[in-house]
């Protein structure tokens, strides 16, 4: 695993120096600061509305950063031949794919901590209440972003960035319309449909009391399954590719 960590570390070093990550973070900070000024606040629900908008904003920012970091990562390295000297060493293709995903996921994790700290801090300052539940939402968003990164990495082992981006956006759309398409669990396709709904906990975090530890564990299980399947798929695709 040392080689995987070395690749992940290099990906993090590279990714955190991309201006776009910091631009999005700054944008998030500005947006978080102006959320409390929105006029549609009712008495008693201001905190809930803040949480909902803050998490929705964090979700959008996370998806943008994910696409920026992962869509062109491997195609760019192939085109610029930066990975020749890496893969000519004692490095397996699957290690490269896993390390790349891990680096992107770690960078996203750092970005999510920063976003989370911003919306948590603003919420605490404005409403004088520490909104700890926000961190559940941030965790779920990070998991979904990391799954999306795994998808991008997997597709990008065999496709150009445009196709990766289109595929990722299509996946995001499809993965969130299960209930609209299939109705409910009584539909036999419900359990095999590629859904990311498990990570959508904005409503219980914003308007309820969050999700239970058991639900968080289930979410982690879904996350692990998605990532394992996609990274495996990416490794298989990449292992057959001529560079």
């Amino acid at each position: 695993m040392n080689r995987v960590f070395a690749i992940a570390r290099a990906v993090v070093s590279d990714a955190i120096r991309r201006r776009i990550v910091w631009v999005v973070a700054l944008f998030a900070l500005v947006l978080a600061a102006v959320i409390p000024m929105l006029p549609s606040y009712g008495v008693g629900v201001a905190g809930a509305v803040y949480r909902e908008i803050a998490l929705a904003m964090t979700y959008v920012a996370a998806m943008i950063v994910t696409l920026v970091l992962s869509v062109a990562r491997i195609p760019g390295e192939i085109e610029r031949r930066t990975l020749y000297s890496v893969l000519a060493r004692d490095v397996r293709r699957w290690e490269y794919v896993l390390g790349t995903w891990m680096g992107i996921a770690l960078t996203l994790g750092a970005a999510m901590v920063a976003f989370g700290a911003i919306i948590f801090g603003v919420g605490w300052v404005v409403y004088s209440v520490p909104m700890w539940l926000l961190w559940q939402g941030v965790l779920a968003i990070w998991m979904e972003a990391a799954v999306l990164a795994a998808l991008c990495v997997a597709i990008s082992t065999v496709a150009i960035p445009v196709i990766v981006a289109v595929g990722a956006l299509a996946f995001l759309f499809v993965a969130h319309v299960r209930a609209d398409l299939l109705g409910g669990p009584e539909n036999p396709l419900w359990y095999v449909y590629p859904s990311l709904d498990a990570f959508n906990i904005i409503a219980p975090v914003s308007h309820g009391s969050g999700v239970s530890p058991a639900y968080l564990a289930m979410m982690a299980l879904v996350f692990t399954g998605w990532v394992a399947a996609l990274v495996l798929l990416g490794a298989l695709g990449f292992s057959r590719r001529d560079l």
């Binding site: 070093s13 590279d14 120096r17 991309r18 610029r80 031949r81 930066t82 020749y84 000297s85 000519a88």
Partner: peptide
């Protein structure tokens, strides 16, 4: 490699 190119941010 021929004409090596490395990540400009490293």
């Amino acid at each position: 490699p021929e004409q090596p190119y490395f990540s400009p941010l490293l």
